[in-house]
């Protein structure tokens, strides 16, 4: 297979970037998208050019490190799939592929396709935890959890923190990410004690970081590689109102 690639190149956070054209040939349909990028980078290095920087690590769709806007969609054309789990058979021979970094004010570009998602860490640091020190706990089975709630909590906990929800949203809202953590802990008895402080602190930090508001377009849910449900946002709002009104 062969492809025309239009890729965002930007030397560092201070410089302005631009789209650059690359042509690539002899690509196997069973190759992963990132392996195609590896080959392009090897070709660039052999020509004496600097390779394209992009984030990636586990290549199993679980670490959340890979990002990229591919043909206008975070993580590319396949539903429920991270960039690292895309294969070239998911594209058409001869196609032009547009590859850009995630776009959001709260995710500044570091280089080429690499962005800074530190805002997500700071939101978790603000309250995405249960305050329990090592050792000061009871036997695990002393905290029974209704199975349906445990399953729902697990659904929310599956979030990999990649930021696709923000990149997909026209408002660059982080509501899906924040609500997934708020929901996981709100659904479990362990999270009840601090429920009020948690949701207030996390939502406040989300606003501080410059993410936009949620207007219920549902783009986040549609693009989430882990198919996190938008109903978590409703649960977060409920928790937030409970915390502010009750």
């Amino acid at each position: 297979m062969k492809f025309n690639l239009k890729i965002w190149r930007q030397k560092n956070a201070q410089s302005t970037g631009k789209m650059v054209d690359y042509a690539i040939d002899n690509i196997d349909a069973d190759m992963s998208f990132l392996e195609m990028m590896d080959i392009l980078n090897e070709q660039l290095i052999n020509k004496g050019d600097e390779p394209i920087a992009y984030d990636h690590d586990c290549r199993e769709g679980i670490c959340g490190m890979c990002s990229m806007h591919i043909n206008g969609r975070p993580h590319g054309p396949m539903h429920g799939t991270t960039t690292c789990q895309l294969y070239m058979r998911n594209f058409t021979d001869g196609e032009t592929i547009y590859i850009e970094p995630f776009r959001a004010n709260a995710f500044p570009v570091i280089r080429d396709l690499v962005v800074d998602r530190g805002a997500f860490d700071r939101i978790i640091q603000a309250g995405g935890f249960v305050s329990v020190n090592t050792g000061q706990v009871q036997d695990a089975n002393n905290i029974p959890v209704n199975k349906a709630d445990a399953d729902l909590a697990m659904d929310a906990a599956a979030c990999i923190g990649c930021g696709a929800c923000v990149a997909a949203c026209k408002n660059s809202s982080a509501s899906l990410f924040v609500s997934a953590k708020v929901s996981q802990l709100a659904l479990l008895p362990q999270g009840q004690i601090e429920a009020k402080e948690r949701v207030l602190a996390m939502v406040n930090q989300m606003d501080e970081e410059g993410f936009g508001s949620c207007t219920n377009t549902g783009a986040c849910e549609a693009e989430c590689p882990k198919e996190i449900s938008i109903s978590n946002i409703a649960r977060m709002n409920r928790e937030y109102y409970k915390a502010t009104l009750l």
Binding site: V132, A140, A150, Q184, L188, G191
Partner: peptide, 8 residues
């Protein structure tokens, strides 16, 4: 420990 932290 993990259950107390909210590991599902």
């Amino acid at each position: 420990q993990c259950v107390a932290q909210g590991v599902p």
